[in-house]
Design a protein around this nucleic acid. Structure first.
Lengths: 81, 81, 81, 81
DNA sequence: TCAGATAAAATCGCGC
DNA sequence: GCGCGATTTTATCTGA
């Protein structure tokens, strides 16, 4: 029985998994950095809860603007037809 | 009335917010990379669902090992009293 | 205008809400019981912190075993295709 | 060396742990029941998200009323002095 | 596009 | 009161 394809597949799978795990570790490190910034801000008297609200609102605004951009693009594309 | 402290605080707050937003953008970029890797793996025939389970399992193993370390430390500390 | 369906729906909604609230109350009562047991154990000399770690570890073991079952099922299903 | 106290303590500890785990299992079962009720409500056309909001509001009202009760009790106690 | 699953964020509650 | 862990709610993503 030929097991070579399994071996190769196993190696590929392992490589994919390790790439993802590495990326997830980086992502986690950034999440920790974010937490640190909140902590630092809190240490200088800012309320993290309020900060989160501000950031959330700004994110929503950005999404809203992006959607409006997309709608505008749709209109422009329609006019171009 | 002296508004300068407000200005300074506002500047500090803005700086914190922008640092966090930048970090969140980086985090999001990494999340996109992860998604791409899953897509690439899927393209070569691996099932993303199974991959996620494997990664989840490996993460649990790691977490479990860490907790066992912690409980050992707790016991040792208790014995030391 | 016929409002009867609103009334019926309102009655149904109320019934659902009250069922949930009753269940949540029971859940809270059990949480209190758990807290009491920790207190009792502490009163007889056991460290609640260590107890929590042990319970957490056992929960993880169980969860891990379940996930291993699931991944096995996934593999078997994949092979069956 | 006399190990009997360890044995006895171990038995006690095990008993406490198992009592807690049993209670946690009951708690989890109730949480599942709650989820089922939400699902049932959704199946008859109610939006779970809105239901959660309603329940949250009612809970807040209840807490508010309880706090008002406590304040009233404080006043009454003060008058009784 | 929608439901169901998964993961993230926010909130809550506890012990120190 | 503060950090930390658990829980709950919200957002995202995948597959039908």
């Amino acid at each position: 029985m030929d097991m070579s394809s399994n071996t190769v597949n196993g190696g590929h799978l392992r490589a994919f998994i390790e790439r993802i795990e590495k990326l997830e570790e980086e992502k986690r490190a950034i999440a920790d950095d974010i937490k640190d910034v909140y902590g630092e801000a809190k240490g200088t008297g800012f309320d993290p809860k309020i900060m989160r609200k501000i950031i959330s609102l700004r994110r929503q605004d950005k999404h809203k603007r992006q959607e409006e951009e997309e709608i505008l693009d749709l209109y422009l594309a329609a006019l171009g037809e």
